[in-house]
Nucleic acid binder design. Structure first.
Lengths: 190, 190, 190, 190
DNA sequence: GATGAATGAGTGTTCATTCAT
DNA sequence: CATGAATGAACACTCATTCAT
């Protein structure tokens, strides 16, 4: 028998992301993805149960890559502010180098498919960051407020500033990225 | 007095938002919107050029309502921090009272249709807020950084904290809303 | 607005039967039926909820025509044997003149769709025949056995003898039809 | 001892019948049959030329089993009526014990595949019954009419009475089976 | 202005069959 | 012999839009 062709699955993965970026989530049909991947529509159904499975799995894959990227050079022993700054820079670097992955994730998160994702499972990859914030609270370095509020000012700004419409107006150079971090830090620090 | 057609257009407007909230952007077809509005599909094409026009116009309408809501009780003579706090509270109030409008806008902003919106035109409604921030910079009350970065910490957090998934975890009571504002303020203040 | 075109519905009805006779129940797709009826596939869904609805409604229509045909020249006052003979002849006549309708019904009855038919409703059209048999039993003209068994020998043989494979071997002339009735009559008479 | 392949072919045979009974003729795809038989779709094409071949061969196999069953306890020397009654009872017994085989045959006979069966070949298995009837005619025990008409009243009623819809209304107990035979006998006897 | 009928092109998915191992 | 991967064509059905009234 023929063995599963990993190149094919990779091609489908990439085609999915590429097409969603090119024509948007709504218009990305299975047939078009198949054509982009140089594959028969039926082949997609060998690797994925259905369209939803394809889109969700692709999203999960991206999220995993993101978490790995954010944790690059993670060093527990560094000063607290430096640890956060590394997260911050990693975030912008990931978006810069993987615009397509990032934008797919953005579109997916606002689609109805998003409701069927096992978010608990995906958030596990981001636990180190949560722990860092908890340490910061315990060591009285940052304000003692809920994780969601902290994240709103120190993690989500990465996404907002990276957002295509905003980043068109806002040049994402070293200086602006550092300025942004300074504001985020001022927001949460004690 | 309203003429008959305005009633119809209003019905279509409401049906569009209701349906997008019920079944999502992707599944909301013209036929279904027509049925929800108790109107023939053909009727929609009297008031709107095509589906895209319907969705975009609906979005623009919502954005206008949003800007009006944000500017409620706007008083130039108040202290700077108070002016911003009123914006902030108005934002949360609008989302709380108009969840459906807000969620439609969220979904729309991440759809490919969004690219065809005349954002410049829409942003005009938000000019007062931009001017307030500019005043703040001139009066050396807040940091002298680009408008986009400031907005990231004092306007966008409203959207993030209102996001359904986050606001499920984060109870949006008076206290959390004020805490959020405190962080935003600390981020931008000099 | 355009009014529903009865010619169109009629065309779909006829195309359905014609195609099922030409290529069989299994291969008769909606697209093929549409082409046969010179109509868009989408048009079929204006007149019928879905494929099942199309097939079932077509079947019901045929059954109604059948019952009407069987009851032709029905005369309660005739001798019992004569009444039955009229049913018998009407049956063969209907099959002879409406081979396609009859064969559609045959195929349908053995399809899984058949399970979703409201048989109770359809059988109402055949009540006169049931009543005739009941009278026969009461008047001690025919055997007092269950209706199903009686029907097996005096109604179903019409179908069996009309069956294409059998009727190829068995010439369905006046004589054979009368001979068949004689056997059926001998079976049930007291 | 059976070789490995015969086991596989047997598995495919059983799976085909089981599946057709479970989900109907129309929905029974090669892939599903393969899964039911715990076999690869490709394997089916080793034993059968194509789907049609699979279905036809399965039908022929069943027909052979049927004829063997009908001829159980066949004894030329018994009185004529008794011989027929044994056929009759064997028929009902076969259906009772092999509902699935019988129902597959019913569904198949009304499918377009049926046209491609070599009926002549299959009917050979039923020759003894034909001969019995011929003897009956010669011995002036039964009416001198064509075989098809005789069969209509003494063989086909087995199938009609066994039909799932009818046999739901008609309890197939010893008494009803014997009553049925009496009617059939009255039909054909001289 | 308002409608439901009508449609070709598209949807996601499964089909019978073949291929490479 | 036996397999799961692979596929183009087909499936039932819905789409955004236009037509005739």
């Amino acid at each position: 028998m023929r063995s599963k062709d990993e190149l094919k699955q990779e091609a489908i993965f990439k085609a999915t992301i590429k097409l969603v970026n090119k024509i948007g989530f709504v218009s990305s049909s299975v047939a078009k993805i198949a054509k982009e991947a140089n594959v028969s529509p039926a082949t997609i159904y060998i690797y994925y149960k259905n369209k939803e499975d394809l889109l969700i799995t692709t999203y999960a894959e991206i999220k995993k890559k993101m978490s790995v990227a954010l944790l690059k050079n993670f060093d527990d022993s560094k000063p607290f502010r430096d640890i956060l700054f590394v997260f911050w820079k990693n975030g912008f670097e990931f978006v810069a180098k993987n615009r397509e992955l990032y934008m797919y994730a953005e579109q997916f998160a606002n689609s109805p498919y998003s409701e069927n994702v096992d978010h608990k499972e995906l958030e596990k990859h981001f636990e180190p960051m949560i722990k860092v914030l908890q340490n910061g609270i315990e060591q009285k370095v940052i304000k003692d407020v809920s994780f969601e509020i902290l994240a709103t000012f120190i993690f989500y700004p990465i996404m907002i500033m990276s957002n295509s419409k905003i980043s068109k107006a806002l040049e994402l150079n070293e200086k602006n990225i550092e300025t942004g971090f300074q504001l985020g830090w001022d927001a949460i620090k004690l």
